[in-house]
């Protein structure tokens, strides 16, 4: 059973792709929980929704390629512009003029684009463990080659289009293990693996290719344009996106950095209380 069910839900169709959204609670400002990479769907916000919805209007949606949303096969359907447009369409469908954005990992791309290109619709932006390739990637990811064919891929080599055709579950198990580096994370790992297996390797391959437009230069350009309040939350033990990325984004965007010492890549799942309080505090400041 869920802790809280949506007050309303629905679908918007954009460019022929169905986007499933949920709306909870009421109160200003609205908080839009953005999707992240399509490997998981909007349930990764399950620890935030019930709390935030007691104070604010909360909207979330399944990113294209995940959950109850459509799964276009073409990589071009997964550009950051497409995700950003989905977010605007969901805001329109739920009657929200402007919102505080909360994103995790590569959801930060869509947030950056929304902030920079639609400042009138964004009141502030919280980036959790953002993908911000402004610094070199983690050392352990240097072996990663998405298009190459490995005989016996191990570790980050599993992050690979060929592996995903036959070894998608192995990749998921590995990847989710890197998301949750904190001891005693069995439930979080089981949840994330379950969500990841609701989509498939082909869809994720398309989604990943669509992301290729997101590079350091683009991030830097967009971040430097931000005018709204920015909060970056990043764990020091993040094994997917380095803590230095969060530092760099906060610095580039003129935002506040909250360091979560000992936390991994999904602190909103693993340390939900602290992250909830930070989001609430951030939204309260905006309310004032």
């Amino acid at each position: 059973m869920r802790a809280r069910y949506p007050d309303s839900d629905g679908l918007v169709v954009r460019d022929g792709v169905e986007i499933r959204y949920e709306r909870y609670g009421r109160g200003w400002p609205a908080i839009l929980l953005l999707p992240t990479w399509s490997i998981v769907h909007s349930r990764h916000w399950k620890m935030q929704v019930p709390y935030l919805a007691r104070h604010f209007t909360v909207v979330c949606f399944d990113g294209r390629g995940s959950g109850g949303s459509g799964r276009p096969a073409d990589a071009s359907a997964y550009s950051d512009a497409a995700f950003a447009s989905d977010a605007l369409a969901v805001m329109d469908a739920t009657g929200i003029d402007s919102a505080v954005l909360v994103s995790a990992s590569c959801g930060g791309f869509w947030a950056l684009r929304l902030c920079a290109e639609h400042p009138d619709r964004v009141l502030g932006s919280v980036f959790i463990a953002p993908t911000a390739p402004l610094v070199p990637p983690l050392a352990e990811r240097r072996v990663q080659r998405f298009g190459e064919v490995f005989d016996n891929p191990v570790g980050w080599q599993l992050y690979n289009a060929h592996s995903w055709k036959t070894q998608y579950p192995e990749f998921v198990a590995f990847f989710v293990g890197r998301i949750f580096t904190e001891p005693h994370s069995t439930k979080q790992i089981e949840d994330a693996i379950g969500w990841a297996l609701e989509t498939d390797g082909e869809t994720l391959t398309a989604a990943d290719r669509g992301l290729e437009c997101c590079n350091g230069a683009a991030v830097q350009r967009l971040a430097a344009q931000l005018a709204c309040p920015v909060l970056v939350i990043h764990g020091t033990q993040d094994a997917v996106r380095s803590y230095a990325e969060g530092e760099a984004l906060a610095s580039c965007a003129g935002g506040v950095l909250v360091t979560l010492a000992g936390a991994g890549h999904f602190p909103h799942v693993r340390d939900p209380v602290q992250v909830n309080l930070l989001i609430k505090q951030f939204a309260d400041r905006i309310r004032q």
Partner: peptide
């Protein structure tokens, strides 16, 4: 809000 560090309880 200002830059802070929160250390996980454990």
């Amino acid at each position: 809000m200002h830059a802070t560090t929160w250390t996980r309880g454990p």
